[in-house]
Design a protein around this nucleic acid. Sequence first.
RNA 1: GGGCGGUUAGCUCAGCUGGUUCAGAGCACCUGCCUUACAAGCAGGGGGUCACUGGUUCGAAUCCAGUACCGCCCACCA
Length: 883
Amino acid sequence: MELAAKYSAANVEDKWYAWWMEHKFFHSEPNDKEPYTIVIPPPNVTGILHMGHVLNNTLNDVLIRKARMDGKNACWVPGTDHASIATENKVVAKLKAQGITKDDLTREEFLAHAWQWKEEHGGIILQQLRKLGCSCDWDRTRFTMEPALSDAVINTFVYFYNKGWIYKGVRMVNWDPEAHTAVSDDEVIHKDTKSHFYHLRYFISDGNGAPTKEFLTIATTRPETIMADAAICVNPADERYHWLRGKKVLIPLINREIPVIEDSYVEMDFGTGCLKVTPAHDVHDYEIGLRHNLPVLDIIDEDGRLNEKALILVGEERFAARKKIVRMLEEAGNLVKTEEYISPVGYSERTDAVIEPRLSAQWFLKMESLAKMALETVESGRTKFIPEKYVNTYRHWMENAKDWCISRQLWWGQRIPAYYLPNGKYVVAATLEEALKLAQAIEPNIKAEDLRQDEDVLDTWFSSWLWPISVFDPEMPGHPDHKPNADLAYYYPTSDLVTGPDIIFFWVARMIMAGEEFMGREPFSNVYFTGIVRDKLGRKMSKTLGNSPDPLTLIEKYGADSVRIGMLLCSSAGNDIFYDEAQIQQGAAFCNKIWNSYRLVKGFSVSKDLKAGEAAKEATRWFAARLSQAVAQIEDLYGKFRISDALMTIYKLFWDDYCSWYLEAIKPAYGQPLDSETFENTLYFFEALLKLIHPVMPFITEELWQDIRPRKEGESIMYALSPKPEAFDEAVIENFTLAMEAVNGVRGIRSQRNIAPKEVLKLKVKAGEFPCIPVVEKLANVELGLCESFDGASQGVGFMVRTLEMFVVLDSLVDVNEEIEKAQKELEYLQKFLNGVRAKLSNEAFISRAPEAVINIERKKESDALSKIQSIEDKISALKNSK
RNA sequence: GGGCGGUUAGCUCAGCUGGUUCAGAGCACCUGCCUUACAAGCAGGGGGUCACUGGUUCGAAUCCAGUACCGCCCACCA
């Protein structure tokens, strides 16, 4: 292969991805190896790839590729989530654009549209993941609403119903009037919203429904709900209002009589201290209503419009009604004043509609036992959270978990398997046939067509919580006695889960619950929480801000490898990621570095007759040790999920150690060949490095690994075993490091004095021996001489490497006075340092209380400083004598 | 309002159960180099009172308390 001077990802990436697919390298089947399993956090079927996906899936892919190269049977199961609300919204929007409203369609017709939409768009994000290089087992691709997984969901529902944990109840729910569904508390976002605080006058009734002159004033933000008022409530301790005891007041405009009640929920110093109680339209009011047995009057319909029970403004939308009723109240003399007011208002996460607290019949799953179990899983460490801080958040939530409202008033999703008899009773069964049997036990003559299935579907999370189980064996959930199939038995529990902390409760906690309930154990060993990807100003990526780059454009521009490493370099666990395109440029620069180092290696002409030179031998010995050392560090970092640190270690190992030191040290003089032994070692090291980098940069590493030497048909770096930590000699590294410091010293002098690298210099080292002399001579371009003492110090520029004194011979260029001055400055510094150390050593308390080792370190510092001081003093006097 | 976490170089972060010559890394910056692998490069260099205040200790970036600011989660006074 002829290598271009610049690396071009475009020519490489698609080729290798296709090749990997062709050879089914991503596919896993149970075997006798240790499994390593990841299930993808299934992206919404409607989704397109954004930077958050890039980060998450790159991490997943790094872990899975690493495991594969560690010899494990790695399986990454991909798939998508049907995302009931989000998808239904998109389909509704699309139909709307065609002039069709949901009401025009039957359930079946609508679902046909939705499935069609899913077929058209559902695969997009999975295709995009291929561009990123994700090594998912595509043969195992799952969809949360495919028939088998839907069955699992239904079975699970029946299971919990029969267990008595699912119940139907009328509750105040968060109603999304736009999506026409209840949403869970977690899907409500509270935002401070500007509104008004209306002070309204309610007249006291004379007992016959006519107003007296007396009145009280309440303050409300929602005047359009006064027609649903059931009482006025004051705090029993509020003496201002004791005169109201036993009285009734009249609701303005409609003159309905309601009682005044007392409840300590009311804050005396907030508003007027009088609260209008509207049980149907406020959660707290509902609870007060329950306590005081108040009637519930629901005046807002599912569209957010006032209904006939409101008596006035019937059919008006709630916000329009608010404006109108304010005017009416003003005209009627009931409006005392209007204040500007900012208060938190709940918005639907999916549609951004203002949430309407609404009473409705919903299905609930009891959380108490499940939450307890799932908390124990994490507390016991069977599932670890990285970073650990999320355990606190998790605990707090689990200890306060409310029952889970699992019904949604939508069509796109798994329909609740409850079947109503004409008499209003219902039965729960997985199929109509079974439901019929149950129904006939109640009413023997009933027929299938008499049964009416519940209209609602289940919350999306009620299917995705089964994901780590159902992707392998959809028969399992709902049937804990079922014998797990071979896949589930082998792959469960999965190994690691990578996801965002925003779905810790929606998804992670619930997967743990389902795992414990159906499998009797945790669904994964580790959960690695990524941060949120933000722009470099710290703002969340969003469509409206336009600060969210399109990952595919970036991949096209820089290559997937660059995008992957660019994202990872700056992402420590749990911290938000401040995305900057410069990071990806850094990734691209690294690709280019790898590429060019390969060009150098590949370009060596090799001679079998040559023996390895001394410098090459030393460099080889050193790099072998250094590699082992780094591999051990990298393994350790991976084990702690410190991915970006592991990466940086590899990055520096390659760039600094391999390229800047090793290759420069073995590089033959221009036009000269390299001995074959060194060449082979160089290739060996290069391959080891490629293997270390492969999990992060799969494409370029495959490209070069394939080129470096002939490979067998179907052999891929993907399955090459990654370098394992081996024992190494610390002294080898230590010695070479000393040599490096000497080289750096000389280079520093060259740089300060503008001496060309080409000019050969003489380096004197005051020592009996010095390691790696050939390396120093080659890389610093010096002739190195050892000597016991310096006589002609005036002819050189000195520097220290640890306690060794060195100097570069520079007869013509030395300014003696300048050298003396420099030496004196250094002497001063050392004196101060020495004084500090001695102060410590002469401190009785220190000597008596500090551990021996620490004291010894201080003694060593003292003696080192003394010897350095001695050297410098000698040097200064030599310099002075030479004047 | 309750809880959790943070504050270390211009930026992003590492510094684990106090003690190596401990104040670090990458990027950015400055200087000099197109030295035949790479200017997406090479070599050299500058830069931080570790948020603040007090305490514990022989010794504090590290432990404790308080203050300020930032972030996240939960709740939501109508």
